[in-house]
Design a protein around this nucleic acid. Structure first.
Lengths: 228, 228
DNA sequence: AATAATAAATGTAAAAAGTACATTTATTAT
DNA sequence: ATAATAAATGTACTTTTTACATTTATTATT
């Protein structure tokens, strides 16, 4: 008996669970489907992997197609492989979660594509197992945020410490003491204070910082633990 | 254009990276392939997912087939999806890592199947991307062991604290102080002291303990962090 | 010009956790 | 009775975490 049997071939999809942060809340990007199957339903973005491309290339392609973005923080979540997960065809999906910075460019692009940001506590019904994917991705983000500073991927390149704190409070769903949070974050030694202030939320203004990727890489390689 | 194109269908494989602990060293289970392709080469165990089974069912089936074991700790590692990863057919593999208890039953079964345990620092050349899978799985275990007590999956149901320490030393590749290790482990409150001693390694004998799964689940749900 | 309002920035003391370190204990073999 | 062996244990010191309130810079208002 040959192990290769044409009947045992699958469609392989990639679905992307895209998170953003709008300065207040953590949000999920949801699309109004404009094509069948499931036309006019809500879903994550996804596509079949083409036979000539790798799974991760497919993920990059999809993200580019739907958001115009490249060089995005994107990681594999897990594979969804239940037999009846797609009633149409036997299809497995390699889900990927992505963290993006919401700016005006993105806002426009996303509208054109018929997409909308939903607060993570208020995600609508999505097709297939996409709600499960969103829940799983959110849980993963919480886990990863515990020991890796992924928060910076969701903020503008320049950000203030109070904004960073708001983001972490959104992820962990709890409040932090401002003094302790600032002390902890600064102790990691991966953000650089700039000579500019952001005055959009206060008269005094808050100093802007930027993330120091090189320093981060150094520390990470030496086994440093960025636990908040 | 239809999104469904018969040309974009893949074989989907599951490969299992199986780790064991022989009281001294962490080991990887490697198989002598008895069938083509790659007959007589070394590899992890794996198989194609059948069209009528889920990916995780395939993983369970494979593990059962090759080791006779059921109810094993097994988690998805990641998907290997490069275009040229398998020179024969376009095939993606959903790799799973498993932790098993090495006992005499397993030792015999494994021999019959043409398998061998290799120390993790001394893994031979394996087919395809199986070496990469092993490296990635090992890294994952190190990460997960940092905050989840997976060590217990590798030890006999009854184990002593010095054995547990040896295991953690094998995973982390460093020594711990016996007093501090014991204090830390006991502080988690997830192991139960038994009224038996193991006298195989000392005249005095060391008390046996068992893992308290219920207590573990309780603590885990309350967000407890089992960081060693 | 003085005052009110607002968010940002800062320090310290107490508690908890982690680390470093050496001796005693139970048992068997000689 | 003694030697040998691994198991079990306690404490002082250091570091980290936590809890908590005031001052600062600035703008808008009177």
């Amino acid at each position: 008996m040959d192990i290769y049997n044409e009947k045992d071939k699958f469609y392989v999809a990639v679905d992307c669970i895209i998170f953003g942060f709008d300065n207040q809340k953590l949000k999920l990007l949801v699309f109004d489907r404009r094509i069948d199957p499931f036309k006019d339903s809500l879903s994550l973005i996804g596509s079949f992997v083409k036979i000539g491309e790798s799974v991760s290339d497919a993920a990059v392609r999809i993200l580019k197609e739907f958001t115009g973005l490249e060089n995005v923080y994107m990681k594999e979540l897990k594979t969804y492989g239940l037999v009846d997960r797609d009633p149409g065809y036997r299809c497995i999906s390699v889900a990927q979660y992505a963290l993006i910075r919401i700016d005006n460019t993105i806002k426009k692009l996303v509208e054109e594509k018929g997409a909308r940001w939903y607060e993570i506590d208020n995600i609508p019904n999505l097709i297939l197992d996409h709600n499960q994917m969103s829940i799983d991705a959110l849980k993963r983000i919480e886990e990863v945020a515990r020991y890796k500073p992924i928060g910076f991927e969701l903020l503008p390149k320049k950000f203030t410490i109070p904004k960073l704190q708001t983001l972490y409070e959104a992820i962990y769903r709890r409040k932090f003491d401002t003094r302790n949070f600032r002390k902890k974050i600064l102790s990691f030694d991966v953000i650089i204070k700039l000579d500019e202030k952001d005055r959009t939320t206060s008269k005094k203004g808050a100093y802007l910082y930027k993330f120091d990727y090189n320093r981060y890489r150094e520390l990470q390689e030496s086994g440093y633990n960025f636990e908040i």
